[in-house]
Simulated scan of single mutants.
Amino acid sequence: MRWTRASTTSTSCPGRLERLHRIDAEGFYSLFEGMVIDDTAVYNNQLQEFESLRS
């Protein structure tokens, strides 16, 4: 699968970018399911892990 960046100026498919953002957000926040985070270090580690999974 090849990753492509969706154009933010394209009006031909306005829902595509919103859908990509929603899917990314769901994937990211699923890492925190059932967790209460009160430390930014934990949050930053999870963010780095998520970004490494996406690339």
Rank of each mutant, 00 (worst) to 15 (best):
M1Y: 12
M1G: 12
M1L: 07
W3Q: 14
W3D: 15
T4I: 12
T4Q: 15
R5C: 10
S7Y: 07
T8W: 08
T9L: 12
S10E: 06
S10H: 04
T11L: 03
S12F: 13
C13I: 11
P14I: 01
P14V: 00
G15Y: 12
R16P: 04
L17E: 03
L17D: 02
L17H: 04
R19Q: 14
R19V: 12
R19K: 12
R19C: 11
R19M: 08
L20T: 14
L20W: 15
L20N: 13
L20S: 13
H21E: 14
H21A: 13
R22V: 14
R22W: 10
I23G: 13
I23D: 11
D24P: 03
A25D: 13
E26R: 07
E26K: 10
G27I: 08
G27Y: 06
G27K: 08
G27W: 05
G27R: 08
G27E: 07
F28G: 00
F28L: 09
Y29G: 03
L31M: 04
L31H: 08
F32S: 01
E33D: 09
G34E: 00
G34A: 01
M35V: 04
M35Y: 04
V36N: 11
I37P: 00
D38H: 10
T40S: 13
T40H: 09
T40L: 14
A41Q: 09
A41M: 07
A41C: 08
V42L: 02
V42M: 02
V42K: 00
Y43W: 14
N44H: 12
N45L: 06
N45F: 07
Q46S: 02
Q46D: 02
Q46I: 01
Q46W: 01
Q48S: 04
E49N: 05
E49F: 03
E49W: 03
F50P: 00
E51Y: 07
S52E: 03
S52Y: 02
L53M: 14
R54S: 07
S55M: 12
S55Q: 10
S55I: 14
